[in-house]
Computed example of a mutant assay.
Amino acid sequence: MTHYIFDMDGTLFQTNAVLSHALEEVFQELRQTGRWEGETPVALYQQIMGVSLPEV
C-alpha cells in the first residue's frame, strides 16, 4: 500500500525548500513520456505558493 501526504500550506514541510527539486523530477518524467515539452515552470509554481485556491 502506498500513501501520499499533501501539505499544500507548508505546515508539515518547508515546501519552498523542496519545490524546485520535486518539480524537476516530475516534469522530467513528463518530458520522457511525451506529456510535457519545454522547461520546468518552477517560477510559476513559486508565484502561486501561499495563494488561495480561488485566486490560483
Rank of each mutant, 00 (worst) to 15 (best):
P41D: 05
L12F: 14
H3T: 08
G34D: 03
D7P: 01
L23W: 06
L12Q: 09
Y4E: 07
H21E: 15
G10S: 04
F6S: 08
Y45Q: 02
V18K: 08
L12M: 14
G10C: 00
D9H: 10
M1F: 12
E25Y: 03
N16M: 07
I48V: 15
H21L: 10
V18H: 12
T33I: 08
L12K: 06
Y45L: 07
L44R: 12
M49S: 07
P54N: 07
G38V: 08
Q14V: 05
G38F: 09
F6E: 07
T2C: 07
P54A: 02
D7C: 02
P41L: 10
N16V: 02
L53T: 11
V51C: 05
G34R: 09
V42S: 03
N16W: 01
A17K: 14
G34H: 07
V56K: 12
T15E: 01
T11F: 02
F27C: 02
F13Y: 15
E39P: 01
A17E: 14
R35W: 09
M8V: 10
E24Q: 13
L44M: 07
P54H: 05
V26K: 07
Q14R: 10
E37H: 14
Q47M: 11
D7Q: 04
E55G: 02
L19C: 07
E39A: 13
V18P: 00
M49V: 14
D7S: 06
V42C: 03
Q47Y: 05
M49N: 09
E24T: 09
V42L: 11
T33R: 14
Q32N: 15
T40G: 05
Q14D: 15
A43G: 04
S52I: 00
L12H: 01
Q28L: 15
Q32E: 15
E29L: 13
H21N: 14
G50T: 08
T33L: 11
A17F: 05
V42P: 01
R31W: 02
M8D: 01
L23T: 03
T33E: 11
L30Y: 12
T2A: 08
I5N: 03
A17N: 11
L23S: 04
Q32D: 15
R35Y: 09
I5F: 05
Y4T: 12
F27Q: 01
S52K: 13
A43Y: 05
T33W: 01
F6P: 00
I5G: 06
G10F: 01
E25P: 00
Q28Y: 10
Y45V: 04
L12D: 03
D7E: 10
V51E: 05
D9L: 10
E39D: 12
L30H: 03
E24Y: 04
E29H: 14
Q32L: 14
G34Q: 04
H3W: 08
T11G: 06
L23M: 11
E25A: 14
Y45E: 01
E39S: 13
H3F: 10
F27N: 00
V42W: 01
Y4V: 14
R31G: 01
S52R: 09
V18W: 10
E29T: 15
L19R: 06
V56F: 06
T40E: 03
E55M: 04
M1Q: 12
E25S: 13
A17P: 00
I48W: 08
E29I: 12
M49K: 12
